[in-house]
Design a protein around this nucleic acid. Sequence first.
RNA 1: GUGGCCAUAGUUCAGUUGGUUAGAACGCCAGGUUGUGGCCCUGGAGGUCGUGGGUUCAAAUCCCACUGGUCACCCCA
Length: 413
Amino acid sequence: MKFRSIKGTKDILPADVAAWQAVERTVRRVMHDFHYREIRTPVFEQTALFSRSIGELTDIVSKEMYTFTDRSSDSITLRPEGTASTLRAYIQNNLGEASPLTKVYYIGPMFRQERPQAGRLRQFHQFGAEALGGQSPALDVEMMLLPLEIYRSLGVEAFSLKINSVGCEKCRPRYKELLKAELMKVYGRLSPESQARVQSNPLRVLDSKEEQDRAATRGIPLLQDHLCEECKKHFQGVTQLLDSLQLKHEVDPRLVRGLDYYTKTAFEITSTALGSQDALAGGGRYDLLVEELGGKPTFGVGFAAGIERLLMVLEKLEKSFVEPGPALYIVALDERSRKWAFTKASEMRKKGIQTEVDYLERSVKAQMRDANRVSAQYVLVVGEQELAAGTGKLKNMQSGAEVGVDLNDIRIG
RNA sequence: GUGGCCAUAGUUCAGUUGGUUAGAACGCCAGGUUGUGGCCCUGGAGGUCGUGGGUUCAAAUCCCACUGGUCACCCCA
């Protein structure tokens, strides 16, 4: 009998953890600098929360959710993204009443039942942020700044930022009708997938990657030219801020994104260092979503970014993260010294000094080899002589130099 | 959901037209130094050749099925 991890899930092994922790540390630091506070929500929710917010017709809801029935026959879903849960928590706990603007971030696992491939797992990890209660374009821009600053801190510069406006409840429905009519004119030239979307989600047809669709929809009127005054002004506010920050960005009038709840700003950050799955982060504004989920009308913007994909970029850029070895490794020669080493190690650890000893009753040579393998900074060898004298020699493993130490007062560095 | 490729030691891989005890490197263990690591030298452990079936005197090698992995499509983080 042999157990394997579930398809599309991966173990994050000790050797990988340094990189993960570096990413997590950076996320927390940057979020903190921008004054976002962490929120931790359950990894599963009522299925309806996701289908309502993300949209019944999206790929995520229609074919990618991990949904099951629990023992009380409620339909439960493992969260496929972080925004829905965050907004549910915001509404449920009346966070909007406590302050007019709520800025939160999250970091954790998400689940989508798709066929795994490079950069796509069934359990993957995202960090993201949401700002609830504000309609300033500054918040939209902040959502782009957050991931970009995190990437910059980690030494990643190779990405591109695409932005668009998908309109609001005033201008989008009008444009949608226009678009449907236009798409019907070229219906026969569209791919089958796009044909199916003409009525249900016409905007997505424009965002199709099929060459056939690109060709068929060339010259079709774009939403950019049909935005209402408010949306146009908002979008200008966003681009002006991006310009004044000297942030390189590209306006992509066809960009839609896979979630239905966006209004006005939508954006995507892709990496030029990745292969087929090159989206590093995405986000946008969702001014109707809180109300849709049963809260008071509340403006909102957010983004989400994939950790595995960021790690892939870091690996491609050959950024390495190593955790330093123990500060002290105590090598013991005999039974009595081993006991002494164990209690001394425990004492050193209490002082906050990372200390390792041998547990396998190995020879001195083997213990030294082990100390070297784990990159111990200092080694203390103790035997009868040292215990009798109360002094020993502390060896610097890098230089090989040894200095005398009082066994009752071991100081490192 | 559809398609391509792959599956041999802990890891990365080699393995001839099917032929007898399946190899290398790295890693691991031990010795060379009866109390000192790395480099070097010597030795050792470690493999149901993914699983099941078939062809054959003979299968890691050929055929079929299954399982798993991987990459791509769609879409997305």
